[in-house]
């Protein structure tokens, strides 16, 4: 299996993501600079957290026009597994790969703390190692994590089971307690909480392992089926 962690100017969770993917998913794991234009052959592409372009204008608004995004769109078209975490989620929203937008937290504060999430759908390529309804603990660390979408979009997200994670105790004002959603095809996940910061006992939680292991299992199965 081949994985890429995209690196934008201002990314700061790229190394954590690289470590988590190397430790749990294994295989080839590359850091890919945002000026690159090719993601051919990557099964998993991670957009890490941070402050790409200093969050200027809006979080993710400028990174969304990096050269690598064209390659990301091509990878999406062939069904590659794409996960955007925190600022990575914001970039996916700005790029239109996921619906909706982020507003500043309702409290106007940067919130950094462990956070309980309910796995709403345990039968996706991102969550198969969890039980539906299971509560997991991933940390959050963001100022603009107050997810918004219009009512029509929300109804679609619900009807298609695209809401993968909800906050047990909504920290930021997100509509319908949404913490993580997929696209309609189910290959792109965006989430504000950080699974890569929950992969070792020393970090306070190992629940993030389940997410990366789910992705690994999905691709091992896909490889077997195509062999």
């Amino acid at each position: 299996m081949k994985s890429a962690v995209l690196v934008f100017p201002g990314s700061n969770c790229d190394v954590d993501c690289l470590r988590a993917v190397r430790e749990v998913v294994g295989g080839t794991v590359d850091a890919v600079w945002h000026k690159e234009e090719d993601l051919t052959g990557y099964d998993l592409i991670v957009l890490p957290g941070g402050f790409s372009y200093g969050d200027y204008l809006r979080s993710g608004a400028i990174a969304r026009f990096s050269p690598i995004i064209g390659a990301l769109e091509a990878a999406n078209a062939r069904g590659a597994t794409i996960i955007g975490i925190c600022n990575g989620f914001q970039i996916l929203l700005e790029a239109g790969l996921l619906p909706g937008a982020m507003r500043v937290n309702e409290s106007l504060k940067f919130i950094c703390k462990p956070c309980d999430l309910r796995v709403e759908n345990g039968s996706t390529r991102f969550t198969s190692e969890f039980e539906g309804g299971q509560v997991v603990d991933f940390p959050i660390a963001h100022m603009e994590g107050n997810y918004y979408c219009d009512d029509e979009t929300l109804q679609k997200l619900k009807a298609n089971d695209q809401i993968l994670f909800r906050y047990v105790d909504n920290p930021n004002g997100s509509i319908d307690d949404i913490a993580g959603i997929t696209n309609e095809a189910g290959n792109v996940l965006g989430m504000m909480p950080h699974p890569e910061r929950a992969v070792r006992e020393e970090l306070g939680s190992t629940d993030g392992v389940g997410l990366f292991r789910s992705i690994l299992e999905y691709h091992l199965k896909a490889q077997k089926e195509s062999a």
Binding site: I62, E94, G100, C149, D150
Partner: peptide, 8 residues
């Protein structure tokens, strides 16, 4: 395209 996010 850039200056506003017309979703919000």
């Amino acid at each position: 395209k850039l200056l506003a996010n017309t979703v919000i």
